[in-house]
Design a binder for these strands. Structure first.
Lengths: 227, 227
DNA sequence: ACAAATTTAGACAGGCTTGTCCAATTCGTC
DNA sequence: GACGAATTGGACAAGCCTGTCTAAATTTGT
């Protein structure tokens, strides 16, 4: 704002780049070591900046932690909404389209770096910062579950599913397609592509056995309905 | 061993009592504060003993942590197996019996003190102690899931369910009956009795919609089969 | 009641961490 | 090329924590 009104935004350039670098390194270290075990020197080293720069940008450890959680929440939410936008509203084949959707959701939102980090921070430090995580809860699961439920309701209304309570169905869908990944998630690991696919396939099959419309010849019906 | 061979076991009496008291206080503090943030003085105070006593019993912080995890793992496993033993092998009414079983499982094993503590420690510190948590994984989920799958297989063999892969069904059963408690678990909270019941009811209904035998008049058939 | 073991409170050194300060240096912009 | 802002490295005090040690007090078993 002060230095000059020339190129792009007010801070020169690498100022913001370093800020991001610090937040990312901090996310990694906070997750690995926990809040108390996280060491500012280590964060600075991992970000490739000096310790003083960390303090210049974020004030103190607690403010840095808050910035990390806000950043992760924002990016994860964006990813989840972007993925929900790819929900199959007019499925050619309900099963394979839902499996593909579940795999996308896992890959882009739950198993990726941001998703794993945010989950771990919430689990580990959620009780210590009630307002911060209440905010996450409202803007995250609160809104994304509603959005997903709306998509399932539409699918049911179009006759592809038979659902009583779309909110319950949405939560159960997520629970089912992740059923076989629980342990891996618990230990902070990253499931293989094959594990994700298998869990999604098994989950969607059960989901459709419970909520799918009965159909005499599935493949033919689907083909006719769409072609 | 040395002092006398008289009353019960070698350490007098409150020796062992204090040991247990320390482990329990340690579990609580490790969960609240994380491994790095846990303070031996605080653990000692919460256990009602002096700091030196903690060191006398457990050597150092890391050994104490291991003792805590071993203790929790053991008690949780015992609870889970005891609860699996109450699985309804000859259900009067499949739905209500499975709901009751799911509620028991949640109340006695997953939502209770030990269950919440163990889960949080695994999530937070699992990556730091690979062998310790590999041991938990083998003796915990590895064996309990098999045991539960065997019970579902028996239920299917007896004609109450229609299941392809009992292992998958067991995992999905657990995922479904906990589907609505995920957020609460994530934040380390304790769901109310009513929340547990509702999640279990919704989960079992979906589970039976997917795996239940079709039945024309459910109530009558169940009554006939049993009475 | 006595003797042995355990527990306690407190002090203590050593190490690590946070957060601040400052002079020297680098970087981006004009 | 020169100016100003940002960055760096290092030193620094203050605080906290672990783990050890000691002498006194308490408990336990006989």
């Amino acid at each position: 704002m002060k230095p000059g009104v020339s190129s792009d935004t007010f801070p020169p350039r690498s100022h913001e780049a370093k800020r991001i670098s610090v937040v990312e390194a901090a996310a990694s270290v906070f997750c690995r070591e926990g809040y108390a075990g996280a060491n500012i020197d280590l964060i600075a080293a991992e970000a490739g900046v000096s310790r003083q720069t960390v303090y210049n940008h974020h004030g103190d450890k607690e403010k840095l932690f808050m910035a990390v959680v806000r950043d992760l929440t924002e990016r994860c939410n964006a990813g989840i909404f972007a993925t929900i936008a790819t929900f199959p509203d007019q499925p050619a084949d309900v099963e394979s389209d839902l499996v593909a959707f579940a795999v996308r959701m896992n890959r882009n939102c739950i198993c990726n770096r941001d998703g794993r980090f945010l989950r771990k921070l919430i689990q580990a430090e959620g009780e210590r910062y009630p307002e911060l995580f209440a905010e996450w809860r409202e803007q995250g699961p609160g809104r994304t579950w509603s959005a997903l439920a709306a998509r399932f309701a539409r699918l049911a209304y179009a006759g592809h599913l038979s659902i009583d309570d779309p909110d319950v169905a949405a939560r159960q869908f997520l629970a089912l397609v992740n059923a076989e990944l629980q342990i891996t998630f618990m230990l902070g690991g990253m499931p293989t592509e094959e594990e994700v696919l298998r869990s999604a396939t098994n989950g969607v099959r059960t989901f459709l056995a419970a909520f799918g419309r009965r159909k005499a010849a599935p493949a033919r019906q689907a083909a006719l309905a769409h072609a």
